[in-house]
Every structure is written in C-alpha cells, then in structure tokens.
C-alpha cells in the first residue's frame, strides 16, 4: 500500500516509523524545514518537505496513486483541507483525519472524510467507562442497534458466586452468551454455576447495562 502521512509531529513520526517497519510504501510530508532535516535523519528517504495542503505538493507526492492519506497535524483546518482535497481532487480511496477539537468531528464526516481520530474523545470515553461501569466493560457496540456486548469480571465478592445462571433475575433484553473460565469458553445453560475469576460475556441493550451491573458487581466495596 502507498500511504501518505501529512504532519511530522509526534503522531506523524511514530505512525510513519511503524508503517515503514510493516513494509508499506510511506511518504511523510512536513512543512517546517528544520523538522524535515531532523525527521530525515531518523526516517531517511521517506520524508518530503512541503505544504501538504498545496496542490503542487500533492501532485509531487503522487497523491493520485495513494491508497490512504492520513492527516495528523495539530490544526483542524489543515487536516480538513488535506483530506478533502485528497478525496475529491485526487480520488484517494481512504482518508483519515486527526480532529483536534471533538466538536468538529461531525463536520469532517459530513464533508466526506472516511475516518476521524479524536484523541480527546477516546481518552474521555476510557475514563467514563472506568467510572461508570466499574467491572462491566463494553467490548463491542453493535451498529445502530443500541446493543452492546459486555464483559464482567467476577471478583471474589461478586454476589452471584455459587449461583446458577437460572437463579439470576436478569433484566429483560439481556442474554448471557458465554462464561470464560481460564482458557475455556463455556456456553452456559440454566444450571451453570458462577465462580470467582469468571469472565461473563453478555449481550445487553445499552439502557439495561446499569441493571446488569447491579446483579454481578460488588458495588459496595469497590466504590
């Protein structure tokens, strides 16, 4: 794959380094000439000096044959223009933009940028998950259905230890899919008993998650 990375800050640098190590053809475009010489020392031939939002630079970089364009500068305006021109003027099939202000994410999607990375939002979500759900960890959100697959690690104090699946008073719209015990994934039935250290994998409607937590988690001692 030919991948063009715009912006040689920390994200652009490590991204380029990783992609090169994976054997991809990569070109990193950086505007600041001093940064370019520093980056070239580290990364070699893959660094190009120029304004990646300028049509001339884009042509020189061979943007029309790029498979992916990733714009990771610290400026949302630059990232939008680079990915937008890549997509609409050079027909690049896949464009990824870093969005610094989470409120601009919607705009980027509306303007046709394929993927956005909002680091503030990712970190915020991780914090929220930790605070909100304690031992119930969402592992997948099923698209549009408002349904999540969650994992619940049973602690030594979980109120369900020794009980069977059939004994639980589960909320509606909830299904226990599997119990992972050590290296084994058990497909549970009504008389399967819960043990300490089990990971319970469940399918749950997002608005029922709190009820599910109350059943499995030892909410008293962990807060």
């Amino acid at each position: 794959m030919y991948i063009i990375v715009a912006g040689g800050g920390k994200v652009g640098y490590y991204l380029t380094k990783t992609l090169v190590a994976e054997g991809h053809e990569v070109l990193l475009i950086e505007q600041d000439v001093r940064e370019v010489s520093r980056l070239s020392e580290e990364l070699g031939e893959v660094v190009m000096h120029g304004d990646a939002s300028e049509m001339r630079t884009m042509k020189e970089a061979g943007m029309e044959r790029a498979d992916v364009v990733v714009s990771v500068t610290g400026d949302d305006g630059d990232n939008l223009v680079i990915t937008q021109l890549a997509k609409r003027k050079f027909g690049v099939p896949r464009t990824i933009a870093r969005v610094n202000n989470p409120k601009n994410e919607q705009l980027f999607h509306r303007l046709g940028i394929d993927q956005t990375v909002v680091s503030t939002k990712i970190i915020f979500n991780l914090i929220e998950q930790q605070i909100e759900t304690d031992q119930v960890i969402p592992i997948a959100a099923l698209k549009r259905g408002n349904v999540e697959i969650v994992e619940i690690d049973l602690s030594n104090d979980s109120p369900v230890l020794g009980q069977t699946v059939g004994m639980l008073d589960l909320p509606v719209d909830t299904l226990i899919i599997s119990i992972v015990r050590g290296d084994h994934a058990i497909i549970p039935h009504a008389d399967t008993k819960f043990r300490s250290g089990d990971s319970v994998i469940a399918l749950v409607k997002a608005d029922r998650e709190a009820e599910l937590r109350d059943i499995f988690a030892d909410t008293g001692s962990t807060r």
Binding site: S53, D75, G77, L80, V81, Q106, L107, L111
Partner: peptide, 16 residues
C-alpha cells in the same frame, strides 16, 4: 491569514 482556516470555518458556517 490562513487559507485552510478560512476554508474550514466557511464550511462549518455553511454545513453546520
């Protein structure tokens, strides 16, 4: 004085 800033803000004004 930033072209990209002008282009982006105008699109925010128009689209959002």
């Amino acid at each position: 004085n930033g072209d990209n800033r002008n282009i982006t803000s105008v699109q925010i004004a128009k689209e959002i």
